[in-house]
Design a protein around this nucleic acid. Structure first.
Lengths: 184, 184
DNA sequence: GTCTATACCCGGATAGAC
DNA sequence: GTCTATCCGGGTATAGAC
């Protein structure tokens, strides 16, 4: 008789799998192995592999936005913290689970596709809300561009292990909240 | 008795599949259906699914670099043309086959992994060569950043159909070769 | 809630006829 | 070079005992 495995643990391991192998490349068998269960036992918690996508991205968004400084009183601190968290994840994990899933889900997994779209829209809106509190012009557009630049930099991490483009993207992102800061 | 199917045709269809579904999601059966062959007939031309990756990326690099203006005499024209081709592909196809493969190949497909790395390094080097001809400072770094920004913008195309971040990335890229140009 | 066992399908790849 | 037929592993998911 095995111990009960927490939902959080399963979702965290599923995130690792999705990030490294994408939606198609990740298997329920491998996930079960990682958490020490039989594959079938996963289905008592999750109706399908597809439903794991929403859970993984919900956890990831929570991680990114938890306990941020209040934009109303410290929007620069909130911005720096959020950008730093995203960059830290990319440095440590070498890639973005959201981007892998964005490319990996299709019309054949519509619920997963919607979950991915919702994840990025919510993240962008959170970023835009911070910039809006700082009265940065066109906050939604700047937020989308900033997130895109951070995501794109993972190309060089995953192909070459080259972190320089990510560092440059972070510098540009921080300059959004501090235009007087040191130039490159 | 069917007509002989050209290698070019097979590789072009494989590119569509890899771009839309990634390495794991693309199947030799689907590829065979697209070109009107039995799956087994693909193996007379390609030793394995993995070997298709190198062929797809070689064709893609050729497409991107064919008949560019000579950087020695018109580096700005070469830069504009290359950036324009990349952006055009992303607009039309909604995503980048190279990025999907970059995330999709693993240590279990080492030849494909190497092909992906080589693809992006060669593309970056071609971009850097153009910038170098124009005496732009740090051409390799600028080329890598520019490519990353274009790639990152596909996130919003694939999730929302939003082309604005790609347009912004193109504007920033063109400004590299024309710093006096119109600001955003 | 987890287990054993399994249904059922789809994946890459091969054998051998024509 | 393409075909028919097939092998074999692995995928998601389910049934039913404990």
């Amino acid at each position: 008789m095995r111990e009960t495995v927490s939902i959080h643990r399963i979702v965290a391991e599923a995130r690792e799998l999705f990030r490294d192998r994408g939606y198609e490349g990740a298997s329920m068998r491998d996930l079960a192995d990682r958490v020490g269960l039989r594959p079938q036992s996963l289905y008592t918690r999750f109706a399908s592999k597809e439903s794991l996508v929403r859970a993984v991205l919900a956890m990831t968004l929570d991680d990114a936005l938890a306990d941020l400084p209040d934009p109303a009183t410290d929007w620069r601190g909130a911005w720096r913290t959020l950008i730093g968290r995203i960059a830290k994840t990319f440095e440590t994990r070498e890639r973005c689970v959201g981007l892998h899933l964005a490319y990996g889900v299709t019309a054949r997994t519509p619920d997963a596709q919607d979950a991915v779209r919702a994840f990025f829209v919510r993240l962008r809106d959170a970023m835009a809300g911070i910039l809006d509190a700082g009265k940065v012009s066109e906050p939604a557009s700047v937020a989308a561009d900033t997130l895109a630049q951070l995501e794109g930099a993972t190309l060089w991490i995953t192909t070459e292990g080259n972190m320089a483009p990510l560092r440059h993207a972070v510098e540009r992102a921080l300059r959004v909240a501090d235009p007087e800061g040191k130039p490159a």
